[in-house]
């Protein structure tokens, strides 16, 4: 991987973030949310409104306001929520770890399911067909339906797993990272980790099924294509075992498309998580956003959008870089 390849990826990352901020700014401009009325109330005097507008710089030229906005973003100032009266950054700091933990867990599950699905199918292992069928069936249902279904079965009927929130009442969430599974391990409280994992299972898997199938399918068809490649024939002619051939020669050459798809899917997951959070009463960004939208809390909505958009862009850049690591021809 050449430094110039990394530099190009980094430049495109910054460019995309800039575009994202511009889009949000324009949306804010045309959305007719009235920050002044929101802060001062509907009965404020015209003088007070004018003073407030001047204080907020709302009468400045658009370009100045955009630069102000951008400066705010860089210093972590996303404005103040109309609803909670807290800084949006602070709110996001409160809710984001829950969402992050859910998505990370779910994404890891999706990758594991995808790899199992693709490899068992390509190596013609027993049960591959059944596994594929189950995954396919589960992914045909919309995420919220799958969530509700799993709630009914595993929580209400069987009572195996908890059905809402991140923790049972017995635990306190105040670890250093906000990711409860990790915090449990860091603070020497394995029971906390186990409890958090149990809470993660249902929403995590419900969210993982769709992406797992998407990534798994792409990975499987790349694997099948690569198995036909002439260099795989060469590897066979060396007398290598099938296992070694698949692991050393086939998998790495098949990662490309699967990595792109993973980058896309992790982005989609941050969008899908909002629905899952409301089904499982998960105290994350989804709940925050759900409360902010009905009251036109624009700074909050824009802040969450910005964070999710940025994650989407970073994830895809990471996928690009990983592709470059897997295939030296990409990273030129």
């Amino acid at each position: 991987m050449t430094p110039r390849f990394l530099a190009a990826r980094a430049a495109s990352l910054l460019g995309l973030l800039l575009v994202l901020s511009l889009v949000l700014f324009v949306l804010q401009e045309i959305s007719h949310t009235d920050a002044v009325a929101a802060t001062l109330g509907a009965n404020a005097s015209p003088e007070a409104i004018a003073a407030e507008r001047a204080r907020l710089g709302l009468d400045d030229p658009a370009i100045d306001r955009y630069l102000d906005y951008l400066g705010g973003l860089v210093t972590g100032d996303l404005g103040t929520s109309f609803r909670t009266k807290h800084a949006v950054t602070e709110d996001i700091g409160t809710y984001f770890p829950a969402t992050l933990e859910l998505v990370l867990f779910s994404f890891a599950s999706a990758l594991a399911l995808a790899v199992v699905f693709a490899l068992t199918s390509v190596l013609r292992r027993r049960g591959a067909g059944v596994f594929r069928g189950l995954l396919f069936l589960a992914s045909t249902a919309p995420t919220f339906l799958l969530g509700i279904f799993s709630l009914v079965v595993f929580y209400l009927q069987l009572g195996w797993l908890p059905g809402s929130g991140r923790l049972s009442g017995a635990h306190e969430a105040d670890g250093p990272t906000g990711l409860l599974v990790v915090d449990g391990l860091l603070t020497g409280d394995p029971a906390l980790s186990v409890d958090a994992l149990e809470h993660l299972l249902l929403p995590g898997i419900a969210l993982a099924v769709g992406p797992a199938l998407a990534i798994g399918r792409v990975f499987r068809s790349s694997l099948l294509g690569t198995l036909d490649a002439e260099y795989v024939r060469t590897a066979r002619s060396k007398g290598l075992t099938e296992r070694r051939i698949v692991l050393r020669h086939v998998v790495r050459n098949s990662l490309n498309a699967a990595l792109s798809m993973s980058g896309l899917q992790i982005g989609f997951m941050f969008a899908g998580v909002l629905v899952v959070e409301s089904v499982f009463s998960w105290p994350g960004l989804g709940s925050y956003l759900g409360a902010s939208i009905p009251v036109s809390d624009f700074p909050a909505v824009a802040g969450v959008t910005l964070v999710l958009g940025a994650i989407y862009i970073v994830a895809n850049t990471a996928a690009d870089v990983l592709q470059g690591m897997a295939d030296p021809r990409v990273a030129r």
Partner: peptide, 16 residues
Amino acid sequence: LGVVFQDPMTSLNPTM
């Protein structure tokens, strides 16, 4: 046994 195929570009693993 050893084998040499026609096209050495496609017969060698591009990522190894």
